[in-house]
Design a protein around this nucleic acid. Structure first.
Lengths: 224, 224
DNA sequence: AGTCGGCCTGAATAGGTGTTCAGTTCTTTG
DNA sequence: CAAAGAACTGAACACCTATTCAGGCCGACT
């Protein structure tokens, strides 16, 4: 006879799965991807190492889902911020600022998701993650171009370049580390946003205005 | 009694060392850092695995030197190109273009040097490499600022962001792969250089002019 | 309450690569 | 040319962590 899965069991299984993913995320957030090892993650999630394999076929799958998860959250945040803006240029500024804020508030996690060396192959999910975020930014640039605020350009390339600039200057190895100094974090976000807007063709003066507007609502997020 | 090192021996040792480094570079150039493994490199260099350890204390050291080597070459190329330019803005454009050209002509190597996951810790030398290149770019931005061609800005941050933009859009996972289509390569270089110049505050129209000038001398390099 | 399916455990296994080292070969010296 | 230092070889070793699996446990069905 085949046992059916009780509602209770289904819930427990789902909870376990989330617990494992959450444990992985925590590990990544405070030790980078290097800390996402099966045994430690299992301990954090209060399960045995073998159990992890009942939920994820391999470490690569676990990490891939982790990446997808984090990306999903980030993408949602970007959309929310951009949609709340009054016009296409503001939306672009808001999107860029959001990415910057997210990166800065979870540097290790961001670095892990994006580029940190991992022993398994997660190229695919990283690629997908970038494609999503870059696509969103590209769409916002596109909108601003259509509105006549920006010169016509290769939006996909531009979006990719912007993300690269954000990542490198905020989480890259050369990024100055002022994790606690809120003022400086703000400055960095403003500076980088300004660079990004100018890069796609916003005039300096106008860009400065957009940056100020975009950073205001993001203020609270920096603390988070 | 202690034997002295004959001139001939000294030369042979030096040659071996270079051969090993060159083998490592070749391996990296066609298989990325993942292909830089002791045994295969030893074979390419026509030595036994153990011999590698007579020249480099560890794999990390080997890779670090490889990174330093490549960086040195790149830095020299950037300086050469920038110094040949007629003014500070042109110099900046030339520097940026040079980076772009180098990246594109050796994508796998560039990716390996910059960011590809490696199993040993080469953070330090990567950091040093980036610092050098970023420093050079920052100096060129600085010069343009002093000449009154650009608004005052955080040149270090700007340089880092520019490099990030170049890397991500040209070698990153989202970078389109037109390895053979020279025309498209040129376009990509132009587009990215334009973005970079505008990012630091060059007016759109002027930036377009600089880009054209900068790409002309770089033309031949693309083929290499 | 009893039986049995399926989840969970965690120690043992597996596999891959950097590193070592005893033995061999090449070079220098008197 | 013999003796001994230096360099080279490559198979064996070491280490590290993902993955497996035999056995225990819990909860579902009758």
């Amino acid at each position: 006879m085949v046992y059916r899965r009780t509602h209770q069991v289904v819930k427990r299984l789902a909870a376990r799965r989330s617990a494992i993913l959450a444990a992985a995320r925590d590990a990544a957030a405070d030790g980078g991807m290097a800390a996402v090892q099966i045994a430690p993650v299992a301990i954090r999630a209060n399960v045995a190492a073998g159990t992890v394999y009942r939920y994820f076929p391999s470490k690569a799958d676990l990490i891939s889902e982790l990446i997808a998860d984090v990306s999903r959250d980030e993408l949602a945040a970007i959309r929310r911020a951009a949609d709340a803006a009054p016009g296409p240029s503001s939306a672009l500024a808001a999107a860029v600022t959001t990415v910057a804020v997210h990166i800065l508030s979870q540097r290790k996690l961001a670095w892990g998701i994006l580029a940190e060396p991992v022993d398994v192959d997660v190229t695919e999910s990283r690629l997908a993650s970038r494609r999503e975020i870059a696509g969103e930014i590209a769409a916002r640039i596109e909108a601003a171009v259509r509105a006549g605020h920006l010169p016509v350009q290769d939006t996909a390339l531009a979006a990719t370049a912007l993300l690269g600039a954000l990542h490198e200057s905020l989480v890259g190895p050369l990024a100055p580390d002022h994790a606690d100094d809120t003022g400086r974090l703000r400055d960095a976000i403003q500076t980088v946003t300004l660079l990004a807007l100018r890069a796609v063709g916003v005039m300096d003066a106008r860009a400065r205005g957009l940056v100020v507007q975009a950073v205001l609502p993001a203020k609270t997020l920096v603390g988070a």
